[in-house]
Design a binder for these strands. Structure first.
Length: 566
RNA sequence: GGCGCGUUCGUCUAGGGGUCUAGGACGCCGGCCUCUCACGCCGGUAACACGGGUUCGAAUCCCGUACGCGCUACCA
C-alpha cells in the first residue's frame, strides 16, 4: 500500500518490538507544539498521541514545546488546561514545560535570540533579504497579476540589496521585514513517511516573511530553528502542514541543517464530512444527531454536578469535555488511535502498552477520518465494562458527591439509610457508561416523600390495571416479613406471591417498579428493592397507594388532577 | 484561480494483481433472551467515485475526469 520509504538515518524498529535498535546519536525525538489557546483540541491530541507513540515505541523521546510566538497571553490561563489535558490522558513528555530538559527553553517566546541569529545568518548568506514593501504595495502587485491572469510573484522591488538601499527606503519612512529569497526554478523534493515522494515547484512559493519590522519572528522560521536545535528527528504533524514543508525545507537547508523526517497525518474531520474538525463550528455539529446526543449527554452530567456548561468551551471537540463528564482517558485514546491508524482487520482494543508496542507510521491512513461520537462511546463502554465494580464505584463517587447524592465523608447523605453507592454501581452494570452516569440514579437518593412519578408510567401501571392497587397492597404485606431483605429472598417471595394469587409476574412487578421508583425502566426489580431496603420500599409503596387512593377519589368528585400534581 | 493531498459499506477500516461472489467493527433493520431498560446472542442491509489503459487476470499498477479537503498571511 505505502511505497517503501527509504529511511536513511533512522532504522525503524520492527512491529511488536519496543526495543531501540539504534545508538543514542540516532535517538528518535518527536515533538508536539501546541499554541497556548486555553483548550486542547481533539485533533491536536490525535497528532500528539501519534508522536508520543512513535517515540515511546522506539526508545525515543517525546517533547512538548509551547508555540507562543507572537503572543502576549497569560500562560497560566492558556497553557495550564493543555498540560492538564495531556496529564489526564497519560501522555507524558520527557522535555518541555514544567519538566525542563537539555534543549530548553521550551517556550518559543523565550527563544527570540535564536531566531534572530538564524535570520541574521540567512541575511548574510543571501537566503533572505530586507524588504521595504508595504502591505498595499504587495496587494497592488497581486491584483495586477490577477488582472493579467498570471501567477503572482513578488517583483522584489523594495528589496534592499545594500546598506544604501536601506537608508534610502527608511528615509521614505518605510520599515523593513525580512523575507526569504526563495528559488524560482526547480523542485523541492522530499519523502513523506506516510505519503511517499513529494515534489513541489519552487516557483509556486512566495518570498515568505520570516521576521516582522519589530524584530519578532514568524512561525515557520521558529519552528524550523527549534526542530533543529531540539534535535527533532521526526516531524509528525497534520496534513495541513504538507504544503508548508517546502518553505521549511528551504529555511533548514539554507541554515545548513540536516532535515528531519517528515510524516503528515490525515486530518481529523467533522462528523459525517471531510472538513477539518474545528472548535468554532459547534453549532453546525449540533445538527449532526449523534454529535448532538453526546453533547447533550455531557451537558446533563455537567449540570447535575453543578456546572453551567458554556457552549463555547463545553464541547466534544475539546478534551476537557471528556474529563468533565467522566470518560476514561484510555477509551478516548483507544478511539483516537484508530482514527487514521489500524493494526489489522480485527484488533480494536488497545491499552497503552499495546498501542506503544504496535504503533507504526507505515500503517497510518492517508485520507481524512471523520470523528464519530457514537463509535467513541462504544469504546468508552467497553473500557468501562472491563473495570471491576470497585473501580467503577471509585470513578463514580466524585460525581455522586458533586451531584449531592452522597456526602463526601461517607455513604450517607441526608438520611441515615441512604443506599450504598457500590450496590447501585453493581446493579447498574453496563448502564453506567461514563462515570458521570451515576447521576441518572438519583431516584435512589431522593427522600421517599419526594419521589416523582413519570405520568405515563403511573397511568399505565398503577391506574389502568384494575387490580393494580389491591395487588400492590397485598404484596406490600408480604414484603414486611421477608428476612433477610435481599434479592434472593425478594425474588422467592415474589414467586410465592404469584403462585398464591394465581397471577403472572407482569401483573405485579411493573406496579411495584413504578410505585418504588416512579419509572417504568430501571435495574432488576429485586436488586432495586434490596438497595432501597425494607423501610424505604414500604414507605414508597405506602405513598403510592395513598396517592392512587387520593387521585381516585378526586376523579370521582369530577375534579381532574394532573398525574404529576401532588 | 494556482499548487498539493486524498477517494473501499452511513462511519472507522482490512485489502499491496488471482485466495474478493470484498473481511471486521460501530450504526441501522429483524429476531431471540427477558420483570422494564440496558447487556448478550443470532441473522440481515450496505462500499471498491467515474472513464480509459497495462495484464491471461485489477479494489490493488498507470493516465485522465469528477468530487472532497488542505495550503495559498507581516496566523499558528
Amino acid at each position: 500500500m505505502i511505497p517503501s520509504c527509504p529511511l536513511p538515518r533512522y532504522a525503524v524498529a520492527p512491529r511488536h518490538s519496543a526495543t531501540p535498535l539504534f545508538p543514542d546519536s540516532f535517538m528518535i525525538r518527536t515533538r508536539f507544539a501546541p499554541s497556548p489557546t486555553g483548550y486542547l483540541h481533539i485533533g491536536g491530541v490525535r497528532t500528539a498521541l501519534f508522536n508520543w507513540l512513535f517515540a515511546r515505541g522506539r526508545g525515543g523521546r517525546f517533547i512538548l514545546r509551547v508555540d507562543d510566538t507572537d503572543r502576549e497571553r497569560n500562560l497560566d490561563e492558556t497553557l495550564a488546561p493543555i498540560l492538564h489535558g495531556f496529564r489526564w490522558l497519560g501522555i507524558d513528555w520527557d522535555e518541555g514545560p514544567e519538566v525542563g530538559g537539555d534543549y530548553g527553553p521550551y517556550f518559543q517566546s523565550q527563544r527570540g535570540e535564536l531566531y534572530r541569529a538564524a535570520v541574521d545568518r540567512l541575511l548574510a548568506s543571501g537566503h533572505a533579504y530586507y524588504d521595504y514593501a508595504g502591505t498595499e504595495d504587495l496587494a497592488q502587485e497581486r491584483e495586477q497579476a490577477e488582472a493579467e491572469k498570471r501567477k503572482f510573484i513578488y517583483s522584489r522591488r523594495f528589496r534592499a540589496a545594500s546598506k544604501a538601499d536601506r537608508e534610502r527606503f527608511e528615509a521614505d519612512g518605510r520599515q523593513a521585514v525580512v523575507r526569504l529569497e526563495m528559488p524560482r526554478e526547480g523542485e523541492c523534493r522530499f519523502t513523506d513517511l506516510i505519503r511517499g515522494d513529494m515534489a513541489f515547484e519552487w516557483g509556486r512559493e512566495q518570498d515568505h516573511v520570516i521576521q516582522r519590522a519589530d524584530g519578532s519572528c514568524l512561525y515557520h522560521l521558529a519552528s524550523v530553528v527549534d526542530d533543529h536545535e531540539m534535535a527533532i528527528s521526526h516531524v509528525i504533524r497534520a496534513e495541513e502542514h504538507l504544503s508548508n514543508t517546502p518553505r521549511q525545507i528551504f529555511i533548514a537547508q539554507s541554515l545548513g541543517y540536516e532535515l528531519p523526517e517528515y510524516a503528515h497525518l490525515p486530518l481529523v474531520a467533522e462528523p459525517g464530512s471531510k472538513n477539518k474538525l474545528s472548535k468554532r463550528k459547534l453549532a453546525k455539529y449540533l445538527k449532526h444527531p449523534e454529535f448532538a446526543r453526546l453533547t447533550k449527554h455531557g451537558e446533563e452530567i455537567a449540570r447535575a454536578i453543578g456546572l453551567s456548561p458554556d457552549a463555547e468551551t463545553f464541547n466534544p471537540v475539546l478534551v476537557d469535555f471528556y474529563e468533565t463528564v467522566g470518560f476514561l482517558p484510555g477509551a478516548l485514546l483507544n478511539y483516537l488511535l484508530l482514527l487514521g491508524w489500524s493494526l489489522d482487520d480485527k484488533t480494536e482494543d488497545f491499552d497503552r502498552q499495546a498501542m506503544i508496542e504496535n504503533f507504526s507510521l507505515e500503517r497510518v491512513q492517508r485520507s481524512p477520518a471523520s470523528f464519530d461520537p457514537t463509535k467513541l462511546m462504544t469504546f468508552e463502554e467497553r473500557h468501562m465494562a472491563a473495570l471491576s465494580i470497585d473501580e467503577r464505584t471509585a470513578l463514580c463517587r466524585p460525581f455522586a458527591e458533586k451531584a449531592g447524592l452522597v456526602s463526601e465523608t461517607g455513604e450517607t447523605a441526608g438520611t441515615t439509610d441512604t443506599p450504598d453507592l457500590r450496590a447501585i454501581v453493581a446493579a447498574a452494570g453496563d448502564r453506567i457508561k461514563l462515570a458521570g452516569d451515576i447521576i441518572q440514579f438519583e431516584d435512589f437518593f431522593v427522600p421517599d416523600d419526594q419521589l416523582l412519578y413519570d405520568p405515563p408510567a403511573w397511568e399505565k401501571r398503577l391506574v389502568q390495571p384494575e387490580r393494580a392497587a389491591s395487588l400492590l397492597a397485598e404484596y406490600r404485606q408480604t414484603l414486611s416479613s421477608i428476612e433477610p431483605f435481599d434479592t434472593e429472598h425478594l425474588e422467592q417471595a415474589m414467586r410465592d406471591f404469584m403462585a398464591a394469587k394465581g397471577i403472572k409476574l407482569g401483573e405485579i412487578i411493573h406496579a411495584v417498579r413504578v410505585a418504588t421508583t416512579g419509572k417504568s425502566v430501571g435495574f432488576g426489580m429485586f436488586e432495586t428493592l434490596a438497595i432501597l431496603g425494607r423501610d424505604r420500599t414500604l414507605a414508597r409503596i405506602d405513598r403510592a397507594l395513598a396517592r392512587i387512593d387520593r387521585l381516585a377519589r378526586r376523579a370521582l368528585l369530577d375534579q381532574p388532577v394532573s398525574a404529576g400534581e401532588e
